[in-house]
Structures are given as C-alpha cells and as structure tokens.
Amino acid sequence: MENMKYAEELVREFLFFRGFTSTLQSFDKELSTDIGRSFHKDQIFDLIFSLYIPKFNSQSLISLFTFFKQCFSASETLMITTLSKLQISVLRYYIVYAVQSGRNDKVIDFFKLHGADLLQRDQDWMSWFAIPYIKNPNLDPLFRVYFSKEWFDALNLSVRNFLSEIFNGTHIL
C-alpha cells in the first residue's frame, strides 16, 4: 500500500513538473472514484459477484482479471497460476449464472466475444460451448458439479482467500 501511494505521488509530481495540469486534475478525479484505491478485498469481491456477473458484464470481469495478472511479476508463477485457475472458475460461474437466470443469449454472446481466446488457452472450454443448447445442463454429468451450492461456496471462499492473500500481502506493486 505504501508503494501505491508513492507511485501516485510520483505520477502527480511528473504531471505537475511537465505542466499537464488538466491531466493532473483528471488523474485526481479518477483516483477519487477508483474502486480499487484502497484495495479492499470485499469491494472487489462484490464487484465480481454482485455487479459484473449479475449484470452480465463479461468484458469488465475479464478486464479485472487481466489487471490483476499485470500486477504480478513473472517470478510469481504460483500466484499467476492460481489467478488463472480462479478466472476459469469465475467465468464458468458466469455461464452457470446466466443459464440459471434463463439468459442463454448472454452465454451465446459471451462465447462470441471471448470463445476464441478461451479455446486458445484451454481446450477444456470446447464442451462449454454446448451448454446453452442442453435442455437441463444442471443434470448433465459434465456440468452438474458447477450447478451445485457446494461448488459455488468453494468458489466464493477461494476468491475471498486469494483476494486476502494479494491485498494483505506484498503482492500488489
């Protein structure tokens, strides 16, 4: 957290030194509305599970995970690997939530936007492309676990624990 404040002061100093006063004003305005400013894990958790997923905002969801990945150095492979696995699970929950909400159109839109990228990273996504066309995916042996309360609870706990680790540790900046 100290490093973050120091970095913000460096940016302010640079903008002031170069005479970019309108940019400095914009920077300060953006910081005042920045949800991640204090890196409060509960706010980030709510952003994922109470805003992005219920509002079917897949682009912001993926952008958030991309931002987190950029915060780790290449030497932190365990954290990057864990984050990638959590991203897969959260995206699968996004799909499950859409199906449970009767919004198969959102699942189809999701795959139109992100399907090619997901398949490039992991071929396990191939079977997920069929989910909007399966009558009862919650009964399908391949997807049944993702519709269970136990899986959702485990996902929630994993995301909370991960956020606690990165925000209470020294992993961000």
Rank of each mutant, 00 (worst) to 15 (best):
M1F: 03
E2P: 00
E2F: 05
N3S: 09
N3Y: 06
K5C: 05
Y6M: 03
A7P: 00
E9D: 11
L15S: 04
F16Q: 14
F17K: 13
G19A: 05
G19P: 07
T21R: 14
T21P: 00
S22G: 01
S26Y: 09
L31A: 03
D34P: 00
G36H: 10
R37D: 01
S38A: 11
F39Q: 05
Q43E: 12
I44A: 11
I48M: 04
I48E: 02
S50Q: 14
L51K: 14
I53G: 05
I53Q: 05
I53A: 07
Q59P: 00
Q59R: 14
Q59G: 05
S60F: 02
S60D: 11
L61K: 08
L61D: 07
F65N: 03
F68I: 14
Q70H: 07
C71L: 09
S73Q: 11
A74R: 12
T77K: 14
T77R: 13
T81Q: 07
T82R: 12
S84A: 13
S84D: 10
L86I: 14
Q87Y: 01
I88M: 07
L91S: 01
R92T: 00
I95T: 05
V96Y: 03
A98D: 02
K106S: 08
I108M: 10
I108K: 13
D109G: 06
D109L: 14
F110G: 03
L113D: 15
G115L: 01
A116P: 03
Q120T: 06
D122I: 02
Q123P: 04
W125L: 09
S127H: 11
W128V: 10
W128F: 11
A130V: 10
A130T: 12
I131A: 03
I134M: 06
K135W: 04
N136H: 15
N136P: 01
N138S: 15
L142S: 07
F143T: 02
F147D: 06
F147I: 10
S148T: 15
K149C: 05
E150W: 04
W151M: 04
F152T: 06
D153V: 04
L155H: 00
R160P: 00
R160Y: 08
S164E: 14
S164W: 04
I172R: 03
